[in-house]
Structures are given as structure tokens and as C-alpha cells.
């Protein structure tokens, strides 16, 4: 459990299929950010046939709304937000080639099914460890929806961003595995 798997984005199916629930990873490369309001707009763009601000194929989406950066820093604190609020939007993006999402908390059956069918994984980052996580973010650029402030879509370059695989492409679920292992009767 102490070994890390190094991942470099973009990711392909063969890399994704090797990941198992419980694997600890360190992600380097590009992450795109989006949370509630940005997802709503992305899906509206897809429904009206418009091109998205970035190509989701092979990419990872990080659910985050950072604090403003201090002068001289690229970003403020930037931990994950709760993922289930994005569940209604996620299957559409996975179907378009998104290879994974990063957040915290459980996903819907629809998202889990989409991940199995189209080969994608769900990673958890440690919620509330926002100052620690921010240290792995090296460059940030707002690429869409600047009017949304913290909810704008950002392209982030990260180095050794820490995460853990919660849901893999075979149906493995770390939240269930973990809970079953430690639960006690009462």
C-alpha cells in the first residue's frame, strides 16, 4: 500500500485498465478543473452542438474551486469538492473520452457503469488538505467561463499530484472495500 504508481496525462485505455481500487497514484501533466456551474455550461454546449473549450479525450477532470492566489503564487488552496453533484453530467463526458475524474465522496451507479463501459477511473484526493495539494500545482491558466470566478475552467499543470483510485474499470470500489474491512457490529 505504500508504493505509488506514476501517471502522466493524457491517459490511454491500457493504462486506465491496469489501475485498481486502492492504488495510490501520483499524477503529473495537465488536469482540467470544473465544478457545478462549469459542468452545467459544458453539457449545454454539448447539447447545442458547440465545441467544448478543451478536448476531453484522454484527460482528467479535477473537481475544485480554488481560493485566490497570493501574489507570486500560481494558485491558492485547492482541494477536491464533493463529486456526486457532478454525477448527472459525468456519463456524457466519459462517453466522449474523458479518462477520469478527481474529487471526494461516492458516485452514482450511472457514473460507475459509464466508467466500466467506456474505461475511466475515479480518483479521490484528500478533502481538506487544500494547502498541501496546492504545492503540486505548478501552472494555472483560466481557459473558459472566467465570469464564474472560482468555478471557471482552469488548465493546471501538476507534478506528483497525490490521489488514490476509488473506482476502477472492473467495478472495484475502495469506499465499499474500506468500510467492509473496518465496520463492526453494534
Amino acid at each position: 500500500m505504500t508504493e505509488y504508481i506514476d501517471l502522466k496525462t493524457p491517459l490511454n485505455d491500457s493504462t486506465i485498465e491496469k489501475l485498481k481500487a486502492g492504488d495510490k497514484v501520483r499524477i503529473s501533466g495537465v488536469l482540467y478543473t470544473a465544478r457545478d456551474a462549469a459542468h452545467k455550461r459544458l453539457i449545454e454546449m454539448i447539447e447545442s452542438g458547440k465545441d467544448l473549450p478543451f478536448d476531453v479525450k484522454g484527460q482528467l477532470l479535477y473537481y475544485v474551486g480554488p481560493t485566490p492566489a497570493k501574489p507570486g503564487q500560481v494558485i491558492g488552496s485547492a482541494g477536491p469538492t464533493t463529486s456526486y453533484r457532478m454525477d448527472t453530467y459525468t456519463p456524457t463526458l466519459i462517453k466522449m473520452g474523458l479518462k477520469g475524474t478527481i474529487g471526494k465522496g461516492g458516485r452514482s451507479n450511472e457514473v460507475l457503469e459509464a466508467m466500466k463501459r467506456y474505461k475511466a477511473v475515479y480518483f479521490a484526493a484528500v478533502g481538506g488538505a487544500a494547502a498541501l495539494i496546492a504545492k503540486t500545482i505548478k501552472r494555472v491558466e483560466i481557459i473558459a467561463f472566467e465570469d464564474l470566478g472560482t468555478e471557471a475552467i482552469r488548465k493546471m499543470e501538476v507534478e506528483s499530484f497525490p490521489a488514490i483510485v476509488v473506482n476502477d474499470t472492473k467495478g472495484g470500489d475502495l469506499y465499499n472495500i474500506g468500510r467492509e474491512k473496518y465496520k463492526m457490529p453494534y
Partner: peptide, 24 residues
């Protein structure tokens, strides 16, 4: 490991005077 990271994160907040969580 998670709790250790939370304690480290709290330390960064205190030392660097930054928000401990992005959801302020």
C-alpha cells in the same frame, strides 16, 4: 496517512498563513 496529511496541512496553513481548505 490521511490524518497525518491533515495535520501537515494545518501546519502549512499556520506557517504560511493560507486557507487550510479551499472552501472557506
Amino acid at each position: 496517512e490521511v490524518i497525518t496529511q491533515l495535520l501537515d496541512n494545518a501546519e502549512i496553513g499556520r506557517k504560511e498563513q493560507v486557507p487550510v481548505c479551499q472552501d472557506t
